[in-house]
Design a protein around this nucleic acid. Structure first.
Lengths: 327, 327
DNA sequence: TTGTACGCGTTATCAT
DNA sequence: ATGATAACGCGTACAA
């Protein structure tokens, strides 16, 4: 910046102003500075700027996995909004480990991020303490947690799961099976199972342990779950796959075996993969506001960062049931 | 840090050393500092550190789209390696626009990133100038570009496409159609078409314009391409879908219509989605080293950043053909 | 409208 | 092994 100031024959302070608040500088000087910037090839140093002003334009995002395509539309939503507001996005993934999350939080706070977006809603005590002390605004968006650190933007996994189960019951299915990812690792899965059980009770359907399964993620896993349930003596007439790509694996297994869906068994999924609408048959599923979660998370965070708002925020975004011919 | 120094009864310089180079500090002082850090809840300020040392531990990644799941395993690979080496990842997406790329590069250079990873290999002149002046190491990894800015880690889109086309020819297919994403927007697609044409020539097969199609991305698009080709008078016996999820859409359309694959027409894909192996029938495809590209990109970049190497690097990662029953 | 002086929190450098 | 001092490049606060 010194070089620019010299070239434009002004002080560095004037250069700084000309760049950040052009209105405060006379048009002629503004022009000289602009030319000098171009001539010198000046690229401002945000590190110095942030250090000096103790304001940063970087937001940190921490999620369990980057590879999981479910999260990518949320990231896209965040990225879109941040870019529009001239903020940068820093990403870390935890591989579903709370220790790794703590490390990532520590690293981001060391970078003096202006705000944090966390997918998980359970954190190590040390992580919570660090965040509290730092005072950075935080958005959690994995599920509508009842006791957020700060702000939440999400949908209710429990309600969504309940709604889909009720939908199946209303369609006349009586022996509704439920497949989720392992409950131990994942509060979202626990929420979903709670919703399933609540819906059974509301519908006066008996809960049958032979109809409830936990499976690891993956297509093969969905196919295996299908076979176990159909041949397991529980005699399901519908299966609700509340996780990942399980439902896709199951439908493809039906295609492979020539089992009609829903003739042999009805199948419902939990997430709005495009693919579900193109399978044969197209699969009934929940449409979750993944992109919107990203957008709104970034928006409420920016509101706080820029001081436009001090409110505690809890945004409950809507889901929808997409009824298709698999049920 | 001042607080820590006071609590530990040492100078800030000693605290700094105790944290970054513990060997240079006596065990007793080291312990006092560690206790003080815990007591104060000290979180170092990397902004100040980087400003002072003019060294950063942030790497910038710029890609066309975050939402495209193809890129997510590359990001995962980068993230894995960076975390192991205590570096942070900043991400921006360009929406396939060179201007947006330039803006992202400018923003990252302003953040004084230690290195850049770019997916695209064509850049605006201003972007190239900025990068050159800044002197930051750069890895490009979209395709094996012949004139890289600095380092490249990728595979050859042209060779991969050529190999698959030759594979089809060797299997006895004579009227091999080729579907790609729009060529104008995408050098990768152009490389792939070049490979296809080269393979036709090597196999002494005639290039027929009725057998070459450009389609937008998406499942529906793949289905449409299938129909256009099959009913378009070009009479293809095999279709090579060299982009995105096009092949998946086509296979599902075949299922829908009851067309046997490869009886009616053979289908080959370009990328290693898990799903391709689970479709009915499983689809022949290329296995591309997406994760490895991420890992190696991060590794060569870190080698440069840490000064372990000054070499110009061009890593050509291998692809594989996975032969399945769709061909 | 423009400039001066100082501080942000850390590391490099040179001393002790 | 430890400390004192001066940067790093910018923004804040105030003065001119």
């Amino acid at each position: 910046m010194r070089d620019v100031a010299r070239a434009a024959q002004v002080s560095t302070m004037t250069v700084s102003r000309a760049l950040k608040d052009p209105a405060k500088v006379s048009p002629e000087v503004r022009k000289r500075v602009a030319e000098a910037v171009a001539a010198v090839g000046y690229v401002p140093n945000k590190l110095a700027g942030s250090l000096s002003s103790s304001r940063s334009n970087v937001v940190g995002l921490i999620m369990p996995s980057i590879e999981n395509s479910l999260f990518s539309s949320t990231i896209q939503g965040i990225s879109d909004v941040l870019r529009r507001h001239d903020h940068q996005l820093m990403i870390a993934d935890t591989g579903y480990s709370a220790e790794a999350e703590e490390a990532a939080i520590r690293a981001f706070l060391a970078q003096r991020v202006a705000g944090l977006i966390l997918h998980d809603t359970t954190h190590s005590p040390a992580a919570v303490a660090m965040i509290r002390r730092s005072g950075v605004p935080v958005v959690e968006n994995g599920t509508l947690t009842p006791e957020p650190l700060d702000m939440v933007v999400s949908y209710s996994n429990e309600d969504a799961s309940r709604a889909m189960t009720l939908h199946l019951a209303r369609l006349g299915y009586r022996r509704i099976a439920f497949v989720s990812l392992p409950l131990a690792a994942n509060e979202r899965s626990r929420d979903r199972r709670r919703g399933y059980l609540a819906a059974l009770e509301e519908s006066r359907l008996a809960a049958d342990p032979r109809l409830v399964l936990e499976m690891p993620p993956g297509l093969a896993s969905g196919a295996e779950a299908l076979l176990r349930l159909v041949e397991g003596g529980g005699d399901p007439d519908a299966i609700f796959f509340a996780g990942d790509v399980l439902a896709i694996g199951a439908v493809l297994e039906c295609t492979r075996r020539g089992w009609p869906v829903p003739g042999k068994v009805a199948i419902a999924a939990f997430d709005n993969f495009d693919l579900l609408g193109h399978l044969v048959p197209p699969v009934t599923t929940l449409k979750l506001p993944r992109l919107e979660i990203g957008r709104r998370s970034a928006e409420v965070l920016l509101d706080r960062i820029t001081g436009r708002s001090r409110a505690a925020v809890a945004v409950d975004l809507r889901f929808e049931i997409i009824h298709r011919s698999s049920t």
